[in-house]
Amino acid sequence: MSVKTHLPVGHEAIRDKGLIRAHKYLILRRLSQTFFLSLFLLGPWFGIWWVKGNLSGSLTFEVLPLTDPFILLQGMVAGHWPEMTALIGALIVAAVYALIGGRMYCSWVCPINAVTDTAAWAHRRLDLPKGWQPKKNTRYFVMAMVLVVSALSGAVAWELVNPISMLHRGLIFGVGFAWTFVVAVFLFDLFVARRGWCSHICPVGAFYGLLGNRSLLRVSAEKRAACDDCMDCFAVCPEIHVITPALRGKDEDTPLILSPDCTNCGRCIDVCSVDVFHFTNRFDDTPAPGRVRARPKQTRKIGEAA
């Protein structure tokens, strides 16, 4: 195993590509998350009701309905048949994420992602142990339990504790109990389980991962032969297991990251100083040459740096 370095994650990328390019997709994601959140806050804050509702369900310009399909599913198993506008809204959202990647919702839209990313950054800076790591299938168990509780209670169970909705309420109504859930997620990721919430617990991420299982947009490690084992991509990836098959694969193995767990966040592209990764589509059959080991740079252990 390679030795651990105390150089900041992405140090080589910043040096070789510049500060902006080394954070391009991170910046775009924050702008995207801020944009969507701002649309919902324009009404309560400024009386500009272009969009009514929140990420669970909304109506844009009194014309376009959008519904979270996971919320719709909970309502249906709870015994509440939705109106046609809600069904149409759910179909629109489901079709979009089925095409571009379900977990893009997690990294490009969900405002809690900024909270968990901050916790992950603080975790690295404080050099904390990774802590308890729930099993990979835990979030699917939580998703199933949410549906069971919804069916038994006759209510949309997840909305009672959903930190996404709580963050929205907290921003509208100010300091209150809703912020407790948001702070709890941050502390959980910081001290209990590194990347624990989004990667292991959240049922919304589990649902959208299933929704985008065959999505078109993918990340490819097409230039994996140039990899110098700096390990920065593993350090920043919220789902590090998705990288290995594409990056460490044999000549005949696809360089595409095909796992539905991939959030298409683009951070592996940002921090790679030798541009191994790029966005493409799932039908990209460009062969990736086998790895030719160059003299490695200082590297960091996966478990210690992430």
Rank of each mutant, 00 (worst) to 15 (best):
V9N: 06
I257D: 07
L147M: 06
L42G: 00
G290E: 13
P111Q: 09
S165D: 05
T34D: 06
M143K: 00
K52R: 06
Y105R: 07
E222L: 01
T286W: 05
G154C: 02
E83P: 01
M104C: 11
V204T: 12
Y208K: 02
G43I: 04
L187F: 12
A306N: 08
Q74D: 12
D253V: 03
L211G: 05
A86K: 10
R169L: 10
R103Q: 14
I100C: 01
P203H: 07
D68W: 09
L19A: 13
H11Y: 13
C106Q: 12
D251C: 01
P111H: 07
D261V: 02
L31S: 05
Q298W: 08
R29M: 06
K17L: 05
P289V: 05
V276Q: 03
I240S: 12
W121V: 15
W132P: 00
V161G: 04
I201E: 12
G75D: 11
L128H: 02
T244L: 12
G176H: 08
T299A: 14
I27G: 03
W197M: 02
T60V: 15
C230Q: 05
A13M: 01
D189W: 02
A95F: 10
M84R: 03
A226C: 04
A157F: 12
R218M: 03
F40M: 04
A193T: 14
W121A: 15
G89S: 10
L59E: 12
F186H: 05
K223W: 09
A246D: 12
F188L: 01
G47C: 00
D68P: 00
V161T: 11
D251H: 11
D275M: 05
W158Y: 15
I20W: 14
P69K: 00
R30L: 15
K17A: 04
W108Y: 09
C202Q: 11
A206T: 13
Y25F: 11
S153F: 07
L72M: 10
A288V: 04
C198V: 13
L59I: 14
S38K: 00
P129G: 11
D189K: 00
K136G: 08
L64H: 06
K223G: 06
S2I: 13
N264S: 13
A155P: 00
D68C: 13
L128G: 00
D117M: 08
S273M: 00
R103V: 12
G131L: 05
R248I: 04
V142S: 02
W45F: 03
S107Q: 03
V219L: 05
L37W: 02
G18K: 00
D251K: 13
A119M: 01
G102H: 06
F283K: 07
A246V: 10
